[in-house]
Simulated scan of single mutants.
Amino acid sequence: MGSLFEVIEAEEAEVRERVEQLEERLAELTERLEAERERLSRLVITRETARALLSRVTDDSAADVPVREAPPAGKRSPFEGAERRVVGVLSVPKWQPGMEPGVLPRVYQDILEVVGDAPGPVRAKQVAPRIGLPAETGKIEGTRSKLKRLVVRGWLDETTPGLFTPSDARKTHSSNSP
């Protein structure tokens, strides 16, 4: 009989150890869960505050942004599959006839000037140093992004991938102006 009790005690000790480990893990997960709930709460408050501020700045144009309520604990994230919409100021407006580069942020004006002064199409790696940036990969990629934004908004053309020129529409319009 003594060996049966020893086996039971050994099994009990193993189970007790697993229970203690699980309780420690549960406490750790509970702490992480509370931290994430706190972060979610702050993000919801931040979004609501930003929406309120933007609505003041844009004369209630932010009111059409759908409000997403936080789900009860244990439910799906309110952002899963949510359509993202950004309301705010467009720093690079779409070019329209009569629009001057002065409406753009300074760095975009500098880029337009460099591209306009070039004898032919230019690459981002040629533009970056001319606007005062080091010829580092990150700076070149940032410049490429700005060049492409100017293409999308009609300020520049991308004749072939990676080669940028002044927009034909802008050149045509400015040559027709008195």
Rank of each mutant, 00 (worst) to 15 (best):
M1P: 12
I8D: 00
I8Y: 04
E11F: 12
E12G: 01
A13V: 06
V15P: 03
R16A: 10
R16H: 10
V19K: 12
V19F: 14
E20Q: 02
Q21S: 11
E23N: 09
E28Y: 11
L29P: 00
T30F: 02
E31H: 06
L33V: 06
L43I: 08
V44G: 13
I45Y: 15
A52E: 12
A52R: 13
L54K: 02
V57Y: 04
T58M: 08
D59F: 06
A63Q: 15
A63T: 08
R68M: 07
P71M: 06
R76W: 07
P78H: 13
P78T: 07
E83N: 01
E83Q: 01
R84W: 00
R84Q: 02
K94H: 06
K94V: 06
W95A: 00
L104N: 00
L104Y: 01
L104M: 01
V107A: 04
Q109C: 03
Q109V: 12
D110G: 03
D110W: 00
I111D: 01
G116D: 10
G116E: 08
D117T: 09
G120T: 15
P121R: 15
A124N: 03
Q126S: 11
V127F: 09
V127Y: 04
V127M: 07
L133P: 05
E136C: 13
K139S: 15
G142V: 04
G142K: 07
K148C: 14
L150Y: 05
V151G: 10
R153D: 05
G154P: 14
G162A: 04
G162W: 03
T165F: 05
P166A: 11
A169L: 14
R170E: 07
K171Y: 07
T172D: 14
H173Y: 13
